[in-house]
């Protein structure tokens, strides 16, 4: 009897990994929800004294953390440099990297009026899983601002049963590839130098 219970338990554990994935929210829904949340936060009436700006930026960064897999983004950006970083350095780099991206792109969106912005979500394209079995999907969208259409594709992966973005492709320009190219020649620089360089860019 005991053995049988154990066996059932065992089977459950083995299969368990794949069951939640089926019940999951599809990648485009996850993306849509987070993008809408970000727009709501950005649309909140401004505070003339600027007291709440910091609090708001923190909330935006939290949101960004929910939708982006910054560790994978940072890994892709560093390319072959990534392996030279120890675990703490990887974490430190990914952290600063997420701040740089959030800071640059949120400040760009600030003060824009979102009434003239609309986003069209197109059919999700599921990519072949990687060799290690990570599920991936491309969510193509079209950003329309003042009548100008910009194609933006979000490349997502499934991690811990939820979908996260690990590359953004704007007009065919992959953000990860772009950083990769920038870091390609940094192979002689120490990880410490690359981290402090990145931190120097943060306000």
């Amino acid at each position: 009897m005991f053995k049988r219970i154990l066996f059932v338990f065992f089977v459950l554990i083995i299969c368990g990994g794949s069951i939640p994935a089926l019940a999951n929210e599809p990648p485009s829904d996850v993306l849509k929800r987070c993008v809408n949340d970000v727009i709501v936060i950005l649309n909140e009436p401004g505070d003339p004294a600027g007291v709440k700006v910091e609090e708001r930026n923190r909330r935006l960064l939290d949101k960004a953390d929910q939708i982006f897999d910054f560790r994978s983004l940072a890994m892709g950006a560093l390319g072959r440099n990534w392996r030279r970083f120890n675990n703490d350095q990887k974490t430190e780099f990914a952290d600063s990297f997420s701040h740089l991206i959030a800071q640059s792109y949120f400040s760009r969106m600030e003060g824009q009026d979102f009434e003239n912005v609309s986003i069209k979500y197109k059919t999700t394209e599921f990519l072949a899983p990687t060799r290690s079995g990570i599920h991936r999907a491309d969510v193509p969208t079209e950003l329309i601002h003042n009548g100008v259409k910009t194609p933006v594709t979000y490349r997502m992966l499934e991690k811990n049963d939820s979908w996260k973005v690990y590359d953004v492709i704007i007009e065919g320009i992959s953000m990860v590839s772009n950083y990769r190219e920038q870091y390609r020649n940094s192979f002689k620089d120490s990880p410490e130098k690359l981290i402090s360089e990145l931190k120097g860019k943060l306000k």
Partner: peptide, 21 residues
Amino acid sequence: VPAAAQEEFADDLFEDYVETG
């Protein structure tokens, strides 16, 4: 195993990103 696989999982995530060098 899944826990260990999580961290180093992504080694092949950017396999199709050719280094343009």
